[in-house]
Amino acid sequence: MTFEQFIFYIFATVTIVSAIAVVTVRNPVYAALFLILTFFTSAATWILLEAEFLGIVLVLVYVGAVMVLFLFVIMMLDINIDPLREGFIRYLPMGILVAIVVAAEIVIVLGSDTFNMAIPDPVPLSDSNTKALGEVLYTEYVYPFELAAVILVVAIIAAISLTMRKRQDATKHQNISEQIRVNSADRLRVLKMKAEEKQ
């Protein structure tokens, strides 16, 4: 076993154990933390594959931003766990059925001819991984890439427009640009008065 394999097995074990822990631990915050650990170790595995750009971006986007928001929501909601656990036996048959269907679908897809090929030789990269990815993304796949960006923007706008509520009547609002534009002449009146006579 080479050193690289040794490192791979360590990360793989941690990934699998923490992925199992995500669905088995009782506390939702711990589950989110294990999900973070899963992401982090998968990023390490990717970096072992010399895909350093993807690995770092996984940490940056999922661990650094998405999971922070996840944790936010979970902490704010203060979920009561016990009602969620009720009816486990009642829903069990349905759950098992769904699990079997999903597993069967995965087996069928992975067993098809599309995936039945020899492992391709890794193409040696002439330059950094980041540069190689960027060149492909902005030349060959530029339209799919831009399309994905547009879809994301549409999703953001949709999410905002669905949740935005104007409550001008109930809350006090400030117009900050108006506040900044204020100058002393608007607020302060300097009065000129005649000094009193000395007595």
Partner: peptide
């Protein structure tokens, strides 16, 4: 190779 990205990724973990 991607030092700047690495810096960004690791500093984004500070918040945890």
């Amino acid at each position: 190779n991607a030092g700047l990205l690495f810096v960004l990724a690791i500093t984004s973990l500070d918040v945890f």
